[in-house]
Amino acid sequence: MNIFRFAGDMMHLLSVVVLLLKIHKMKSCAGISLKTQELYALVFICRYLDIFTGFISLYNTIMKIVFLASAFSILWYMRSHKVVRQTYDKDQDTFRHYFLILACMVLALLVHHKFTFREVMWTFSIYLEAVAILPQLVMLQRTRNIDNLTGNYVFFLGTYRGLYMLNWVYRYLTEVHYHHRWLTWISGFIQTALYADFFYYYVKSWRNNEKLQLPA
Protein backbone atom coordinates (compact mmCIF):
# COMPACT_ATOMS: atom_id res chain seq x y z
CA MET A 1 0.00 0.00 0.00
CA ASN A 2 1.38 3.36 -1.02
CA ILE A 3 1.27 6.66 0.84
CA PHE A 4 -1.49 8.13 -1.40
CA ARG A 5 -3.87 5.26 -0.78
CA PHE A 6 -3.16 5.31 2.97
CA ALA A 7 -3.56 9.09 3.17
CA GLY A 8 -6.81 8.76 1.19
CA ASP A 9 -8.15 6.15 3.60
CA MET A 10 -7.18 8.29 6.57
CA MET A 11 -9.00 11.28 5.07
CA HIS A 12 -12.05 9.11 4.57
CA LEU A 13 -11.82 7.87 8.15
CA LEU A 14 -11.29 11.40 9.44
CA SER A 15 -14.40 12.63 7.64
CA VAL A 16 -16.49 9.95 9.34
CA VAL A 17 -14.92 10.69 12.73
CA VAL A 18 -15.61 14.42 12.33
CA LEU A 19 -19.23 13.75 11.43
CA LEU A 20 -19.76 11.34 14.31
CA LEU A 21 -18.08 13.82 16.64
CA LYS A 22 -20.51 16.53 15.59
CA ILE A 23 -23.49 14.24 16.03
CA HIS A 24 -22.37 12.61 19.26
CA LYS A 25 -20.88 15.59 21.11
CA MET A 26 -23.07 18.40 19.82
CA LYS A 27 -26.14 16.17 19.58
CA SER A 28 -26.84 17.83 16.26
CA CYS A 29 -26.96 16.85 12.63
CA ALA A 30 -27.85 20.32 11.39
CA GLY A 31 -26.74 20.84 7.81
CA ILE A 32 -26.16 17.12 7.21
CA SER A 33 -28.07 15.43 4.41
CA LEU A 34 -29.72 12.17 5.45
CA LYS A 35 -30.06 11.28 1.78
CA THR A 36 -26.30 11.43 1.22
CA GLN A 37 -25.82 9.28 4.33
CA GLU A 38 -28.33 6.73 3.03
CA LEU A 39 -26.50 6.60 -0.27
CA TYR A 40 -23.16 5.99 1.45
CA ALA A 41 -24.64 3.14 3.50
CA LEU A 42 -25.87 1.59 0.25
CA VAL A 43 -22.47 2.15 -1.37
CA PHE A 44 -20.70 0.28 1.45
CA ILE A 45 -23.20 -2.60 1.48
CA CYS A 46 -22.84 -3.17 -2.27
CA ARG A 47 -19.07 -2.77 -2.37
CA TYR A 48 -18.25 -4.87 0.68
CA LEU A 49 -20.37 -7.90 -0.23
CA ASP A 50 -17.15 -9.90 -0.06
CA ILE A 51 -16.37 -8.80 3.49
CA PHE A 52 -16.54 -12.34 4.87
CA THR A 53 -15.51 -14.28 1.78
CA GLY A 54 -12.67 -12.33 0.19
CA PHE A 55 -9.91 -11.70 2.67
CA ILE A 56 -7.25 -9.24 1.52
CA SER A 57 -5.67 -7.98 4.72
CA LEU A 58 -6.62 -7.34 8.33
CA TYR A 59 -6.39 -3.63 7.52
CA ASN A 60 -8.95 -3.95 4.71
CA THR A 61 -11.37 -6.02 6.77
CA ILE A 62 -11.20 -3.68 9.77
CA MET A 63 -11.68 -0.60 7.59
CA LYS A 64 -14.68 -2.19 5.87
CA ILE A 65 -16.27 -2.95 9.23
CA VAL A 66 -15.54 0.59 10.45
CA PHE A 67 -17.10 2.20 7.37
CA LEU A 68 -20.17 -0.03 7.49
CA ALA A 69 -20.65 0.42 11.24
CA SER A 70 -20.15 4.18 11.12
CA ALA A 71 -22.56 4.56 8.18
CA PHE A 72 -25.28 2.70 10.04
CA SER A 73 -24.69 4.47 13.32
CA ILE A 74 -24.98 7.84 11.54
CA LEU A 75 -28.27 6.70 10.00
CA TRP A 76 -29.50 5.52 13.39
CA TYR A 77 -28.62 8.84 15.02
CA MET A 78 -30.29 10.91 12.30
CA ARG A 79 -33.44 8.81 12.15
CA SER A 80 -33.96 7.43 15.65
CA HIS A 81 -32.02 9.35 18.29
CA LYS A 82 -34.61 11.43 20.10
CA VAL A 83 -32.49 14.60 20.31
CA VAL A 84 -30.40 14.35 17.14
CA ARG A 85 -33.28 13.57 14.80
CA GLN A 86 -34.99 16.83 15.74
CA THR A 87 -32.00 18.80 14.42
CA TYR A 88 -32.33 17.20 10.98
CA ASP A 89 -33.48 19.80 8.48
CA LYS A 90 -35.79 17.73 6.33
CA ASP A 91 -37.17 20.66 4.34
CA GLN A 92 -33.70 21.55 3.04
CA ASP A 93 -32.88 17.96 2.11
CA THR A 94 -35.05 17.61 -0.97
CA PHE A 95 -32.76 15.95 -3.50
CA ARG A 96 -34.44 13.08 -5.36
CA HIS A 97 -31.81 10.54 -4.43
CA TYR A 98 -33.84 7.57 -5.68
CA PHE A 99 -33.18 8.78 -9.20
CA LEU A 100 -29.45 8.60 -8.53
CA ILE A 101 -29.80 5.00 -7.34
CA LEU A 102 -31.84 4.05 -10.38
CA ALA A 103 -29.52 5.79 -12.85
CA CYS A 104 -26.40 4.22 -11.31
CA MET A 105 -28.00 0.77 -11.32
CA VAL A 106 -28.95 1.05 -15.00
CA LEU A 107 -25.46 2.30 -15.84
CA ALA A 108 -23.83 -0.53 -13.86
CA LEU A 109 -25.94 -3.06 -15.76
CA LEU A 110 -24.84 -1.54 -19.07
CA VAL A 111 -21.21 -0.58 -18.36
CA HIS A 112 -19.08 -2.95 -16.29
CA HIS A 113 -15.94 -5.00 -16.56
CA LYS A 114 -17.61 -8.35 -16.02
CA PHE A 115 -21.25 -9.39 -15.92
CA THR A 116 -21.45 -11.18 -12.60
CA PHE A 117 -23.58 -10.25 -9.57
CA ARG A 118 -20.56 -9.30 -7.48
CA GLU A 119 -18.99 -7.23 -10.22
CA VAL A 120 -22.17 -5.37 -11.20
CA MET A 121 -22.88 -4.54 -7.55
CA TRP A 122 -19.30 -3.39 -7.13
CA THR A 123 -19.58 -1.22 -10.25
CA PHE A 124 -22.92 0.18 -9.01
CA SER A 125 -21.23 1.16 -5.73
CA ILE A 126 -18.45 2.95 -7.63
CA TYR A 127 -20.95 4.97 -9.69
CA LEU A 128 -23.17 5.71 -6.71
CA GLU A 129 -20.27 6.84 -4.56
CA ALA A 130 -19.25 9.33 -7.25
CA VAL A 131 -22.58 11.17 -7.02
CA ALA A 132 -23.64 10.42 -3.43
CA ILE A 133 -22.39 13.81 -2.24
CA LEU A 134 -24.87 15.73 -4.45
CA PRO A 135 -27.74 15.94 -1.90
CA GLN A 136 -25.20 17.17 0.68
CA LEU A 137 -23.76 19.81 -1.65
CA VAL A 138 -27.24 21.08 -2.47
CA MET A 139 -28.02 21.27 1.24
CA LEU A 140 -24.79 23.16 1.97
CA GLN A 141 -25.67 25.74 -0.62
CA ARG A 142 -28.99 26.35 1.14
CA THR A 143 -27.44 26.57 4.60
CA ARG A 144 -26.53 30.12 5.54
CA ASN A 145 -24.31 29.21 8.46
CA ILE A 146 -22.18 26.16 7.77
CA ASP A 147 -20.48 25.13 11.01
CA ASN A 148 -16.80 24.17 11.02
CA LEU A 149 -17.36 20.47 11.58
CA THR A 150 -19.75 20.19 8.63
CA GLY A 151 -17.34 22.14 6.40
CA ASN A 152 -14.43 19.95 7.47
CA TYR A 153 -16.49 16.79 6.99
CA VAL A 154 -17.18 17.64 3.35
CA PHE A 155 -13.59 18.80 2.79
CA PHE A 156 -12.07 15.54 4.10
CA LEU A 157 -14.57 13.51 2.10
CA GLY A 158 -13.65 15.37 -1.08
CA THR A 159 -9.92 15.03 -0.48
CA TYR A 160 -10.15 11.26 -0.03
CA ARG A 161 -11.00 10.34 -3.61
CA GLY A 162 -8.55 12.90 -4.95
CA LEU A 163 -5.78 11.08 -3.09
CA TYR A 164 -7.07 7.78 -4.45
CA MET A 165 -6.54 9.15 -7.95
CA LEU A 166 -2.87 9.77 -7.14
CA ASN A 167 -2.77 6.21 -5.77
CA TRP A 168 -4.14 4.83 -9.07
CA VAL A 169 -1.55 6.73 -11.09
CA TYR A 170 1.20 5.52 -8.74
CA ARG A 171 0.03 1.89 -8.96
CA TYR A 172 -0.29 2.14 -12.72
CA LEU A 173 3.33 3.24 -12.95
CA THR A 174 4.81 0.89 -10.37
CA GLU A 175 2.80 -2.36 -10.40
CA VAL A 176 3.27 -4.79 -13.27
CA HIS A 177 -0.04 -6.60 -12.72
CA TYR A 178 -2.09 -3.54 -11.97
CA HIS A 179 -4.81 -3.33 -14.59
CA HIS A 180 -5.98 -0.14 -16.13
CA ARG A 181 -9.39 0.38 -14.53
CA TRP A 182 -10.79 3.20 -16.59
CA LEU A 183 -14.26 2.79 -15.09
CA THR A 184 -12.98 3.54 -11.60
CA TRP A 185 -10.70 6.31 -12.83
CA ILE A 186 -13.49 8.21 -14.59
CA SER A 187 -15.85 7.79 -11.62
CA GLY A 188 -13.14 8.89 -9.21
CA PHE A 189 -12.41 11.92 -11.32
CA ILE A 190 -16.08 12.93 -11.50
CA GLN A 191 -16.44 12.33 -7.75
CA THR A 192 -13.52 14.67 -7.00
CA ALA A 193 -14.54 17.25 -9.62
CA LEU A 194 -17.97 17.63 -7.98
CA TYR A 195 -16.18 19.16 -4.99
CA ALA A 196 -14.26 21.75 -7.06
CA ASP A 197 -16.66 24.57 -6.30
CA PHE A 198 -16.81 23.66 -2.62
CA PHE A 199 -12.98 23.41 -2.37
CA TYR A 200 -12.66 26.87 -3.85
CA TYR A 201 -14.91 28.50 -1.24
CA TYR A 202 -13.55 26.34 1.58
CA VAL A 203 -9.94 27.44 0.92
CA LYS A 204 -11.02 31.04 0.36
CA SER A 205 -12.89 31.24 3.67
CA TRP A 206 -10.00 29.55 5.45
CA ARG A 207 -7.42 31.98 4.03
CA ASN A 208 -9.54 35.03 4.79
CA ASN A 209 -10.42 33.66 8.21
CA GLU A 210 -14.10 33.98 7.43
CA LYS A 211 -17.06 31.73 8.02
CA LEU A 212 -17.71 29.33 5.16
CA GLN A 213 -20.67 30.28 3.03
CA LEU A 214 -21.51 29.03 -0.43
CA PRO A 215 -23.10 31.42 -2.93
CA ALA A 216 -26.72 30.53 -3.64
Partner: peptide
Protein backbone atom coordinates in the same frame (compact mmCIF):
# COMPACT_ATOMS: atom_id res chain seq x y z
CA UNK B 1 -6.27 -12.79 -11.39
CA UNK B 2 -8.16 -10.39 -13.63
CA UNK B 3 -11.07 -9.26 -11.50
CA UNK B 4 -9.54 -8.96 -8.06
CA UNK B 5 -6.87 -6.34 -8.48
CA UNK B 6 -9.13 -3.32 -8.11
CA UNK B 7 -11.10 -4.85 -5.25
CA UNK B 8 -8.17 -4.67 -2.89
CA UNK B 9 -9.09 -1.03 -2.30
CA UNK B 10 -11.81 0.35 -0.09
Amino acid sequence: NESDDSHDEL
